[in-house]
Design a protein around this nucleic acid. Structure first.
Lengths: 209, 209, 209, 209
DNA sequence: CATGAATGAGAGTTCATTCAT
DNA sequence: TATGAATGAACTCTCATTCAT
């Protein structure tokens, strides 16, 4: 009934509230130095409450990734549905999608890249880990689909679309991390937008026959 | 006198001994879960001794990066000295160099990518931070140099060589991290060697007119 | 509401409970050898809990002084209010007050004398340091007030009352420390009560014309 | 033979060198925060060497007191030998002696007052503890002797000279500690010289019939 | 569902002391 | 005698997590 749904909705809203707070705190202090109490304060809740919505700190951390992965997948599927040939257009659309994902929440995106191959990954609920894996795979597949027709038609080089997707994703994450790193260190003369633009230009040329 | 040099050498050896142990422990447990006592045990030393050679845990962690950055720079300069035109050859040599760096010590390399844009970066001795920055910059410049003549001669697309270097470096780190991540998660059907090969192929095509 | 007041009261009670435990442990082992864990055990709490009520060990230590300084000030003000001329009576009353302070808690009193001119003083919250300074000053001033009329009337020697107060306080702390020291060393034939009595007798004679 | 004496002299010189360094470091950092390595550096020796001359940190600390106690005793005996009646003169001479002791080395003197009734006292070699006790007792007795004739002749009040000595010593230490404390806290408007002068004036009046 | 005081294991780090050279 | 690298026990303090209210 409606009452249950309302409860559900409220519960989800609370979760979001906590995740928003967590994101801010993680971004400001980094994962290790951020304490659950910090997050609780930021969310204007008590530490204990956090544990009603997230099993532990690692899960809270990982949950942040989930949201952006969902957004990524949605965005890629949208590109798949709406963008048609020629394949060059699709690469343009892909680039825009990736940049949208970056802009959707840079902090969370970087969090997610950090999560990959980190300690936290091992301590997750199998459930949560599965969700992340599935979303990742689906996203990669959606990306691969974008390259597929181009490969078939001989417009793109003759490689497995999924492999091209891997490289695209790697390049994207590499650019985001490296530019962020440069910003942190101080060489902030260059911005992500431009570098990403150029990276995709090279990618497009590189996979086009 | 010889006595002083010997001491110096022994001190350096100890440092290496600790770093080797640290690398193993960090790799096994991750930075946070690895304790100084773990590392001390692995190095067959007492916890206190570690602090005679490294100011604190962060510095020890960061020092690991230093070694591989030095190797990277050395390798790139070697390529610059020995590899001549045509420019395509240089990209091949660059690829080999990068893969060498990866193989030199995959764990440390990944550590280093993690260090970039992480908490630890802020707690370093200015001294150490400087060294890291300088090595990074020098490496990027060395890489840029490899592209320079190709750009001048019109073999490569008309972009700033340093920007191309940035993208190359981003792609490299992206591929290493993403493939490692896939391995961790379980989709270990693909290996880094191949992905890197393909990434460089695309890069080469992408920057060649 | 009452609920908040009750919380406040309970919090205060906890603080007291910790301070009582700390006093015992400090007295038994001395400041340095006493560990926070010792104190926690004595208070039947966990070490972490101590830090919910006191910022650190130094603050806990200093807080002990606060209580006795408050008692001292209260006692001196009471003397000021209730004891009238002749001035000799006031010295008697002062002596009784000081001895009361000593008996109120000898261990804490000695702690306090040790705190003065010790390392700990520099690490305190400005807040706490201020409170200590203010209480000290107020106490000295209250003491000075006791001598004031006597000086004005020419019964006492013509010195600044605050200077007389300083000497009185110095004499008091000197006697307490020195007698304690003798007790520790083993010459415990003499007791503080008698020495203090005699010291005040000499003081009274000394400042009376 | 002379050779042995020379060795002895050299050994003593080394001890002094260490004690001078220790005094400085203790004064600057306080007993707890001063490390043996600090002291070793100040003395331009290695930490290990310190242990060839002092059993441990506590003994080194306590040894500082020994020197000033020796000076005190010497100074008091000199007063006894050279200063004759009337008894008022003797008090003047005593005051000068005490102030000399203070000026001989304020830092060490304060160290010594702190040592009294502190943790360190319990961890000393019986030997060293004995020396300290003996010197203290002798000094008190020498002081008592100064009052003795005055008491006998009826110039001074009818109290045990040793008790008067106790009070004098207590007053002296109290003034030094309290004025130092005020200096540390910041109310350094008053200096020790004046306060001591006044304290002795009151004492003299107080014990004179 | 929410609280937040309490927990307590465990971390990083220090430093008095030792001992092979 | 002097060294100083190494020790390792012990410290203070933190913080993810729990649970009585």
């Amino acid at each position: 009934m409606g009452i249950r749904e309302r409860k559900e909705r409220e519960r989800e809203r609370r979760r979001q509230q906590i995740m928003v707070a967590a994101k801010r705190v993680f971004a400001e202090k980094g994962f290790n130095k951020a304490t659950m109490e910090d997050i609780a304060k930021e969310a204007e809740l008590s530490p204990g409450t956090l544990y009603l919505y997230f099993k532990n700190k690692d899960e809270l951390y990982a949950s942040l990734s989930l949201r952006i992965l969902q957004y990524l997948l949605m965005r890629l599927e949208h590109v798949n549905r709406t963008t048609s040939e020629p394949s060059q257009n699709r690469i343009q659309a892909l680039k825009d999608a990736m940049y949208d994902v970056y802009e959707f929440d840079p902090l969370i995106l970087i969090n997610m890249f950090h999560l990959q191959s980190s300690d936290a990954l091992k301590n997750l609920t199998p459930n949560l880990l599965n969700e992340i894996q599935n979303l990742s795979r689906s996203s990669l597949e959606a990306m691969a689909k974008l390259f597929e027709s181009g490969v078939k038609e001989g417009v793109f080089i003759d490689k497995r679309p999924l492999a091209i997707a891997d490289i695209t994703w790697a390049m994207f994450s590499g650019v985001v991390l490296w530019e962020t790193s440069k910003k942190l260190i101080g060489n902030n003369d260059n911005d992500i937008r431009n570098t990403l633009e150029m990276a995709f230009e090279i990618l497009a040329r590189g996979i086009t026959k």
